[in-house]
Amino acid sequence: MAQVRTPRRTTAKEFGQGIARWVLESVALIVVLVALWQVLTSVFHPLYFPTPVAIWGQIARAWFTPLGFTADILPSFERVTLGWLLAAVIGVPLGVAVGRSRSFAEYVTPLVHYARAVPPPVILPIFMIFFGVGNAMKVVFIAVGVLWPILLNVIKGVESVETVQLDTATVYGIGGSRRLLHVVLPAAMPDILAGLRISLALAFVLMVISEMIAASGGIGYQILQSQAQFDILNMWAGIVVLAVGGVVFNAVLTTIEGRVLRWHRGQRREAL
């Protein structure tokens, strides 16, 4: 076999070095910026910018308490999770169904683009009429808002499955639902997960908006309330809690994505 070459495989050592470099690159910069912020704020005492130490103290005091958890943090993250999951459960199967039929996709895709072009906040008043201002309204609002990027990406992914891959399955007698499950879905998975990741970020935005406009609890509600009551420290604490929550959610999804799409990253690396 003349054409054998050594495939590139990441060794444990390389993997460790990669993690170390990632930690250094991403965490080091944050540490430096926070330290700079600490120094500047403790020297100049600006009215609207508390020190990071003070913000941390406020988070520990007011947010990381049983009441803070149940009244604000949990409801917010629950809305994000439920709204996003609802959109995924509807969007992925619907996108697959639309993407499998070319003519259907040609009709539906422009419609989805229109729907996506509507800024979700403008439909919030309509949702308040139909669903009131309760938790269900916020979940449905988030779900409807983040449905479109999921749909578009799933349709695109399913449409762009290689014809040769589909033909291969067909020739080997694998058709219908088995072909869908074992060929179409895995082939479209990179796009499906990209859509889910984009929509997760959007779900956070919509959660905050819905809480700022119509809520009696939640992180967005607390941030706006604190600002109105001139509790600048608590406002900043809320922003930090929200940001950290966003990072954690995204990290979880990215980890899952990395596992599911190991083949995809490897294939792209080899193609370079």
Binding site: V164, Q165, T168, V183, A187, W263
Partner: peptide
């Protein structure tokens, strides 16, 4: 067996 082996095999 297709000419386009890279697309005919399933990369996952």
């Amino acid at each position: 067996v297709f000419q386009d082996y890279s697309r005919s095999l399933f990369p996952w």
